[in-house]
Nucleic acid binder design. Sequence first.
DNA 1: CTGAAAGCGCTAACAG
DNA 2: CTGTTAGCGCTTTCAG
Lengths: 328, 328
Amino acid sequence: MKRALPVTSRDIARFLGVSQSMVSRAFDPAGKVSPANRARIMEAAEKLGYRPNAIARSLSTRRSGIVAIVMGGMENPFYSEVLDKLAAALDLAGFRSLLFRAPPGQDVDGQLPALRQYNVDALIVASASISSRIAEEWRRDSRRIVLFNRTISDADVPSVSCDNFGGARDVANMLADRGHRRVAYVAGPRQTSTNREREAGFLAGLMGAGSSLVGRVDTASYSFAEGFRAAEAAIATKPDAIFFANDILALGGMDYLRGTAGLSIPRDVSVVGFDDIAMAAWPSYLLTTVRQPLDRMVELTIASLERDSATKEMNNIPIEIVLRNTIS
Amino acid sequence: MKRALPVTSRDIARFLGVSQSMVSRAFDPAGKVSPANRARIMEAAEKLGYRPNAIARSLSTRRSGIVAIVMGGMENPFYSEVLDKLAAALDLAGFRSLLFRAPPGQDVDGQLPALRQYNVDALIVASASISSRIAEEWRRDSRRIVLFNRTISDADVPSVSCDNFGGARDVANMLADRGHRRVAYVAGPRQTSTNREREAGFLAGLMGAGSSLVGRVDTASYSFAEGFRAAEAAIATKPDAIFFANDILALGGMDYLRGTAGLSIPRDVSVVGFDDIAMAAWPSYLLTTVRQPLDRMVELTIASLERDSATKEMNNIPIEIVLRNTIS
DNA sequence: CTGAAAGCGCTAACAG
DNA sequence: CTGTTAGCGCTTTCAG
C-alpha cells in the first residue's frame, strides 16, 4: 500500500511556474497576490487536492487554531451540554477543540505542559481547578485562557460564570416567601467554587429572610448517586424544603425521597436544584431550579478568547429561577 | 508583556555543550545516547523547563499523537458516555483527542480534509456516517480509522459494534416468552445503521416467535422528546409491549405513557429500551434494556487503532439484557 | 556513541 | 505584486 504523499504548496507552485511563497500568500486572505494569480492558484489547488498543512503553518506562526478544553466531571450532564455547546461555538469561530479530561477534583496544573507542546492557542478550563500561578504563567505566555464557571480569587484570570451566589440567595428568598421555615442544604464537593458560592448565597438569603438551616449534608461528587444518598441524611432533619447544590444531585435526591422514603414532592417536602439540565424538565421530575444561561455563557467565553477582553463583567451573569412542580 | 520564548532542544544542547541531535535522541526511548549523557540531558531539560515541541516533531515525523473523534448526536446521553470513555482510554494510550461534531444525520466527508491538515493519526467515527469512498481513501493514506457502532456495508473499514441485531432479536424472544403477543416498535432515525440492525433483529425475532408487530413509529432523532411524541402514536395501536430503538427514546416514551396517558408500566404495557445508559437505572425508570458493553467496545476500538488489526471479529460483540421493572 | 547537515511545509521579512 | 531567503523545532540519515 503506497502512501500517497500529500501535495504541498511547492507542488502547486511548480505546477503553475510561480514561487512557493505566492501560493502561501494566496491562502492568506490578506496576502498580496494579483486576483488573476490567486484564481489560478486556487483552481490548481482544487484540482490537485492541495490543503495547506496546519502543522507546518503552526510551526512557523506559533499558533495552531486549536483550543484546549479541560474538563472534569463529565458524569454531570450539565457538563456534557457545556462541552457540546462549546465545541459547536468553537467550530463556528474557526477553532478546533482538543479535549482534556481533568482528574476529578484535582487541579490541572500537571496537564498544562503537555498542552504547550501543541501550541494550543487558548485554554478553556471548565469544571476543574487550576492554580493561580499556572494560570498567570500561561497568560504571560500570551496565550489566552478563560475559566468557565470557576473563579480564582487571587489572580487576574478571565472567567465566565453566572451569579451562583445571587441565584442561591434568590432560592432562599423564594423558599421563605412561600412559607418554608425549615430548610436543608445538600452541598456539592467542598473544593468546587460553584458549591462555595451557592452555599454562601443560600446562607445569606436564609439569614436575611429569617429562615433557618436545619440540615446540611456534604457530597463527594456532583452525581445522581450522591444526591440519592445525601437525601436520606437531609430528610432526617425534618426540613420542609431541601436545596441541592445542583440538578443531578436533586434528581437523585428526588428518587430517594419519593421512591425509598415514600414521600410526596412537594406536599411533604419541596426540592430545588441548580443548573436546569435537560432532565430537570422531564415530566417525571419537573424540578424547580435555577437556570444557568448556558448559551450566553458560551458566547461570552468565545468572545473572551477572541479579543483579550475586560474580564470583570463576565462574572455574575444573572440567572433565573425556573418554577416547576417540586416546590409548594 | 514579554513573551517567554519556549526553550528548545537547541537551548539545552548549547547549555550542555552537546549537539542538538543528541538532545533529540535522548527523548527517543530507542535513541542511541550514552546513559550518562541522557541523564545530564534529562536533568538540564527538567531544570530549564524543556519539553519537546509536538508540532515540530509532527512536521518531521508526519504523526501527531492526535486522534480525532467525530461524533454527532451528543444530545443522546449514550454518546456522552462514549465520548468520556473514549477520551479516557485515548489518554491512557498516550493520545490526545481532537473533537469534531458531526452535523446531525449527515455524513462527515466534508470534515475530513480539515482533519488531514492536522496530521491526525487516527479517526474514530461515532454516531455519524461516512461514505465508503472517503473511508477507504483515508485508509489508503495509511491513517487509521475505526467506526464506532456504525458499519459500512460495501467497504472494508474496521468497525467496532455490538450485536444490535442479536440484541433486538433477543428482546423479541423475551417478550414472546413472557406472553406478549401484540408489540410495537419505536424506530430510531432511518439513516442510522443502529436502527436498521435493531429493527431487523427485532422483526426476525418476532417472526420466529410467532408474535406480531401491531405498530411501528418513526422518529427524527434519538432524543427524549421524540420518544415522548412517538409513544402516543405507538400506544394507539394497543400493544402490550413497546420496544424503543434506544434508551433515551424509551425514557421519553415512559413519561408519556405514565404521565400523559396515565398508564401503568408494566401492568398496562411493557417497555424495553437499548443501550443501558445511566438514567435507565434511575429509580424513577428502572428500564429493562439491552446493555451495550461500552468498556469492552472502547477497549477494542483503541486496540484497533494501535495495531491495524483484523477487523471482522470486532463486530457483533455480544450484548446482554438487563431485566428491570418495565416488563411484565 | 556523537555531530553535521538536510529536510518536514509553511510564513515572513526583504528586495526588486 | 512577486521571488528569494531565512527560519519555526525536531527527526533522521550519514559520517566520524
